[in-house]
Design a protein around this nucleic acid. Structure first.
Lengths: 235, 235
DNA sequence: GGGACCGTTCGGTGATCGTCGAAGAGTGCC
DNA sequence: GGCACTCTTCGACGATCACCGAACGGTCCC
């Protein structure tokens, strides 16, 4: 051994946290941005409570999860947007893999997920792509030379009454590669603000306990009027 | 188990490829963007040739590495820029970890790496940050609303004689988080083109066999004249 | 053709790690 | 106080996996 990169051990340790299927199931479930209890995750993953307890301990110790104890419950959520970004990136890299034979039920969920879903705290799926494309077509978002809001875009968020809180180092706009559509959609502070506004204003609602969301009739109207999103893009 | 995300197995498998320290050493070494032989990687990692051979087989099968056989040599390199991006992102996430007691030699390498180095195919370290900051200060790169070249930026690359080949889906400009400086630097097509130009024009030269680069006297002049990069930022 | 070099395959070994059930600690409710 | 519920700790089991050395097949060079 000559000059092993000192970061190798840490890199392997971090990847090792994600390298277990049960832990991966937990991370993907937590990608909805909400806090889950240990028991919920255990049932969701189909393992014993003791097993998930140990997994959560490792994920928290590794900095991927943040925990909050309330009474006899232990709530965990992704530590921050960077961790969510990491998991999304890894997932996007996986997709080109073998097309697995999905069951009917899984296909149904999969189709709903493809239509519209959340990526941690922003919109994804066909819905996310449609919104991102509409922003770009109207000159509010620039994708040709990178990925950034234009001055017109800043003004649009302002007049729409969607505040963009510039907090910490999180970028205002960031491209997040969609693993169903294989195209980038809007993430970052602006993506999160837009998603929260869409949920608050009733443009879309969560479906079941998964990350899937459905666009309401009111949302269809609002998206058409304010951004020119065609109904066909949301079918 | 209710509805395990179907991508969990793939996610765990992908992370598992990086979760071994020896494989992590190989991936970090390959982050210089060049092709290494199996023997070089074995010596670099300090393991038997047979061991590294098995590791490379897994990494190639997993799509992280591309291989090229020439005579009795097996050359491997990172499969594409996306894989490099992934490894860099994971590494950046690791840094806040415990400050390990580096040996004197390691500290020397570390310091050289911090000054200037390559991230796969673009500039990083203090050099990368200095160039990115200079581009931003001159209005050629916009970081406040995302990360994208401006029209003036496109013109600068054109007049500087640095061609920007828009190939495939790779973004023209992308932010890459630096793990020594904790700040974003320019990656993507523009970052790669600028780095290649800097090496071709003799602005900087590679140091040893690692990823470290050193700015030449001519490079100092050129960077100062064309971008207003101060010499102090390259010290 | 002989010899040096590079890489791969294979069997064996040792360690790590995910899993479970049982037992126990802490919390909330009646 | 007593019961139900949530989560954690512990010991044990089983499987996976990285590692090595030895043997072997290819390739290049003298």
């Amino acid at each position: 051994m000559t000059t092993r990169d000192p970061g190798a051990a840490g890199l392997a340790r971090l990847a090792g946290l994600i390298a277990d299927e049960t832990r991966a199931v937990c991370l993907l479930a937590l990608l909805d941005g909400r806090a889950w209890t240990a028991g919920e995750l255990a049932r969701h993953a189909g393992v014993a409570a003791s097993t998930v307890s140990e997994h959560l301990g490792k994920l928290v110790a590794g900095g991927l999860l943040a925990e909050e104890r309330q009474g006899r419950h232990r709530y965990v959520r992704l530590a921050d947007a960077r961790v969510a970004h990491l998991v999304e990136d890894l997932t996007a890299q996986v997709v080109p893999g073998a097309p697995r034979p999905a069951s009917l039920a899984a296909a149904g969920t999969r189709s709903a997920m493809a239509r519209g879903r959340t990526c941690y705290d922003h919109l994804a799926g066909r819905l996310g792509i449609a919104v991102t494309d509409a922003l770009t077509a109207r000159g509010l978002l620039r994708q040709d030379t990178g990925f950034a809001l234009t001055d017109a875009g800043l003004a649009w968020f302002d007049t729409a009454g969607i505040p963009l809180a510039r907090t910490g180092r999180r970028p205002l706009a960031r491209a997040c590669l969609d693993w169903t559509e294989r195209r980038p959609h809007l993430a970052g502070v602006a993506g999160a603000a837009l998603c929260r506004h869409a949920l608050d204003a009733g443009w879309c609602v969560r479906v079941g306990s998964a990350r899937a969301v459905r666009v309401t009739a009111a949302g269809r109207r609002a998206l058409s009027e304010s951004l020119g999103v065609e109904a066909a893009a949301l079918a």
